[in-house]
Design a binder for these strands. Structure first.
Lengths: 232, 232
DNA sequence: GTTTGTGAACCGTTTCACAGCA
DNA sequence: TGCTGTGAAACGGTTCACAAAC
């Protein structure tokens, strides 16, 4: 049993990034990497990288580093990308169409094999060689095509209904683009991608940076005021 | 002076979600919320909500809760969404076009006011009433239009170049859709939206859930809460 | 009764620092 | 020398629990 220890979420997220860099290095035909180099590429400390790789049970060579190809393969296995995942997209709007068009998912272990939409005017049309199907076909298609995951790219108002349908149809995970927390059973995994939150996080960062710059410029680099409601 | 204490990133992220729910409640004309109700809507504990709101210096009424409108406004102020942000989109591909088409950004404090692309065949076309401009216009347009943030929706290979151009043009933050860590100066904020990582995180969750279910089924269901795997 | 505000305990992750190996 | 692996310490965030306020 190589890679099935419990993987903390922060580590899992970094594994994705390591993998991206390892694939780049493999393309460059670099054979080994140090934890330092890998860490720099993804914005993590070297010790962090070593801890992460230790967690998934992968060893490197002291004085040398890690073998690029072997490490990439080990990470793919832990993430679960060594097999091909089949996805159903629900919602053939702007985001949905952009996702289907993104061909390189396919080389990365993912494939959108069916597209659904609730709107009668969209059903029957073709996006990226896939015919848009009516929602009534969902359950049957998921079963027939062996679909593992659902992608929700519909307006917030109907997102929960779609999620319910997907769960009932038997998907194991949902990637949600609607700006709404969806409730699904514990047996179904769920990841959110929320443009609005991302933008808000960004402008919050910008705002904080602004006030930091201002107070930096105003105060001598000694005063450490702030601390609002500190106890005595 | 109200909301400029240091806000931890996890808190900032939840503030976005609180705001979403508060806007929904405001639309329903609910006047107050308890930390419990707010927490349930975003998947956080009630104490967590109270801590978060304490951090931004907002008080509620014991026995009653928080005033919906006032809280929403306070959060908008902390996030920085009380002002309108102007964005430049670089990359008029699938993702780019989907973003421009997403009209409701506008009511949420964001507006894409210019679109750029490096490809001569795309420059000059119109997406959502905006003419696609050549990259050579970037610096001048950012200055003239008072653009605060840049959105990078180009292939990974040119993402760093685009980011450099945006920083040189004077944007304060970058929202990056390219699957590549971009380096920008410390003065510029940066948030990544990475579909591939999101998908990988999802399937990793699915995989872990699978092994958890298996080992659960194997061992006796003796009211063992979680903790799935006994050590080797 | 309900619900807030908050010190204190708790927990998981990150960073440090260094022994051990190539 | 360069680099890994790993305990131990430091850090930051979350959860608990309860007094105070309505």
């Amino acid at each position: 049993m190589p890679g099935n220890a419990r993987v903390p979420r922060p580590t899992a997220q970094r594994l994705s990034l390591y993998l991206r860099e390892l694939e780049r290095l493999a393309a460059i035909e670099q054979l080994t990497v140090s934890s330092r180099q890998l860490g720099e590429a993804v914005g993590a400390a070297d010790a962090q990288v070593r801890k992460d790789l230790g967690i998934i049970g992968h060893s490197g060579m002291p004085g040398i580093g890690y073998r690029v190809m072997a490490l990439a393969e080990a990470i793919r296995e832990v993430i679960g990308v060594h097999k091909q995942w089949r996805a159903a997209l629900v919602g053939a709007g702007n985001i949905g169409r952009a996702l289907v068009a993104y061909r390189s998912f396919h080389e990365q272990g993912f494939e959108i094999v069916a597209v659904f939409d609730a709107s009668a005017t969209v059903v029957g049309r073709t996006v990226a060689q896939l015919r848009v199907r009516p929602m009534t076909d969902l359950a049957a298609t998921v079963a027939r095509e062996g679909i593992d995951i659902g992608i929700v790219a519909v307006p917030a108002e109907c997102a929960q209904d779609v999620a319910d349908d997907l769960v009932a149809a038997g998907v194991r995970g949902i990637l949600n683009f609607a700006p709404r927390l969806l409730s699904v059973g514990k047996r179904v995994a769920m990841v959110n991608v929320d443009f609005r939150s991302a933008l808000e996080n960004l402008v919050h960062d910008v705002s904080q940076r602004e006030i930091a710059e201002i107070s930096e410029a105003v105060s001598k680099p000694v005063a450490r005021r702030r601390r609002g409601r500190g106890a005595a």
